[in-house]
Simulated assay, not measured.
Amino acid sequence: MEQRMIIQARNLSKTFQVKEKRKGLKGSLLSIVKPSYKEIKAVENINFNIAEGEIIAFIGPNGAGKSTTIKMLTGILYPSAGDALVEDINPCKKRKQLAYKIGTVFGQKEQLWTHLTPYDNFKFFGAVYDIAEEEVEARIDELKNTFELSEFINTPVRNLSLGQRIRCEIVASLIHKPKILFLDEPTIGLDPVVKENIRTLIKKMNKEFGMTVFLTSHDVGDIEKLCKRIIIVNHGKIVLDDSMEKVKYHYLDKKMIEIKMKEETTLPRIEGVTVLKSKGVNLKLEVDTKVISIQEVLKWLDTDNLMDITISNVPLEKIITQIYKERG
């Protein structure tokens, strides 16, 4: 059965005109009288399809065009060229209609009224989306249990911890049962335990409700643990669109080996092996498996002197940095 495409972008582009400031007092006065502008291409001819129920990571360095793309997909910004369809709705032409179909969470921007309790905020958002009162109550009760909000649902938002607030922000965006959730840095500033809780909840929403999740994040843990597909943008263009599995396969020709010896040892220079750390009895190596196999590297070690060894893939963060450099 063919999957339905819930988000479609076709040659989506956005160009901003930015006023140029001239040097010196004379230049400043001239800028007022006769301003000059330069064009900045924030997004340039972006194309992608996202199937219903996907969790995708849309990532890139600062200034790559991520937020601009999200704003065009949600109807906040009009594209300079190209178009988009989100739930078969053109975001530019029917933004209000689209608002009933999507939820948004921006980790650095609050949508909750801080002087109100989460419960009162949820009631407010229910009214905004024209949901019947008994339906709102049932929805709040359902989400309160799913997100474990009972202990603080009647505490003013300003008195909540960051982790509690983010949970409430997500719940507020789910009150109207959206088909798509746009998450922009949802775990920013959270401690590791709370991050893991938020990720678990996102996966649960996707699995139980079939919700499509469009995620932007600089946290590699979010990307690695949530997403099966990754779109990387840089300088306003897509530089890679592939499955997480293939990204790891094509870029995991290097392995990390962490070794603990009984006694301090020094390895000879080996082609394809980089010593990242050598301190006392501990060694950390990066092995290029295109040049030398792991088995060959291990032959150089004195197994009688070996206490512990760990072999792992290169961190995803390093892979993404490599892709930026190669394709950016």
Rank of each mutant, 00 (worst) to 15 (best):
I180A: 12
I180S: 12
K179G: 15
K177R: 15
R165S: 02
F182V: 00
E169C: 00
K179I: 12
A172N: 05
I170P: 01
T187D: 10
V193M: 15
P192Y: 13
I166Q: 15
L190K: 05
F182W: 08
P178L: 09
A172H: 03
S173V: 06
I180E: 11
Q164V: 02
D191Q: 13
L183V: 09
H176L: 13
L190G: 06
K179H: 15
P186K: 11
E169F: 04
P192R: 05
G189H: 08
P178F: 11
R165T: 14
E169G: 01
T187N: 14
C168M: 02
I175H: 14
S173G: 07
K179C: 14
T187Y: 10
S173W: 03
D191W: 12
V171T: 05
S173E: 05
L183N: 09
I166K: 11
I175P: 11
V193S: 14
R165Q: 07
R165H: 02
R165N: 00
K179P: 14
I175W: 13
L181C: 09
C168I: 07
V171M: 03
L183S: 01
P178T: 07
D184C: 06
G189I: 07
L174S: 07
V193H: 12
P186Y: 08
I170S: 04
I175F: 13
C168Q: 02
I180C: 11
K179F: 10
E169M: 06
V171F: 03
K177F: 07
I180P: 09
I175A: 14
I180N: 10
R167L: 12
P192S: 12
I188S: 14
K179E: 15
E169D: 05
D184I: 04
F182D: 06
L183T: 10
G189P: 10
L190T: 01
S173Y: 02
L183Y: 06
V193G: 03
Q164F: 04
L174D: 09
L183H: 03
A172S: 15
R167A: 04
L174M: 15
C168A: 14
A172I: 00
I166G: 06
K179D: 15
P186R: 10
R167I: 08
P186L: 10
E185W: 11
I166Y: 00
G189K: 03
P178C: 07
P186A: 11
R167Y: 01
P192Q: 13
V171E: 04
D184N: 11
E185A: 02
L190S: 08
P192L: 11
